[in-house]
């Protein structure tokens, strides 16, 4: 497997990374935005997943809710990725050897891919052909994936 080191070095040497490093408050500011957007994203995802699990009212469908929240999920994800990239570039070399970060980035990509493929397909087909076991399993996997991303993210700063 080719090394990803050049990518990390490139990010580390960006002008933006330098600005973040030199300023005391850009990093906390970006992190705050990261967390506020995280609350919105996680709220949207958990809301839909709980609906799939039948743990909130049963008189609406998860697919209806998911469509309703879709613009919020999307824009909060973009905000998270942008602020995340900013935070990342400022300490890319440190993160290269950070195990929680490696774990987080993998689970993040899996979670995003899962959300926009299987998760969405299952929600769309929910009422039609899928037994409720698969719908519930998808919801549980989704919650577990995003939880892993969150906890690994929190762990980055401590290791």
């Amino acid at each position: 497997m080719p090394s990803l080191l050049p990518l990390f070095q490139w990010a580390n040497n960006l002008q933006v990374a330098d600005w973040v490093r030199k300023s005391t408050w850009i990093f906390p500011a970006a992190e705050t935005v990261h967390i506020v957007a995280l609350a919105v994203l996680f709220g949207a995802i958990v809301f839909v997943d709980l609906q799939m699990l039948g743990l909130v009212r049963r008189d609406t469908s998860a697919s209806h809710l998911e469509k309703e929240l879709r613009p919020w999920t999307f824009s909060s994800l973009i905000v998270i990725l942008c602020t995340g990239a900013l935070l990342f570039s400022s300490e890319a070399m440190k993160l290269y050897i950070n195990v929680p970060f490696q774990f987080k980035i993998v689970t993040l990509f899996v979670a995003i891919a899962f959300n926009y493929t299987i998760h969405r397909k299952v929600i769309g087909a929910e009422a039609v052909r899928l037994s409720s076991v698969w719908v519930k399993l998808t919801a549980v996997v989704s919650i577990m994936l995003w939880l892993s991303v969150g906890f690994a993210g929190r762990a980055i700063g401590f290791f």
Partner: peptide
């Protein structure tokens, strides 16, 4: 994430 993320809706 759970409290503010849900209350916000």
């Amino acid at each position: 994430a759970l409290s503010v993320g849900m209350l916000c809706w």
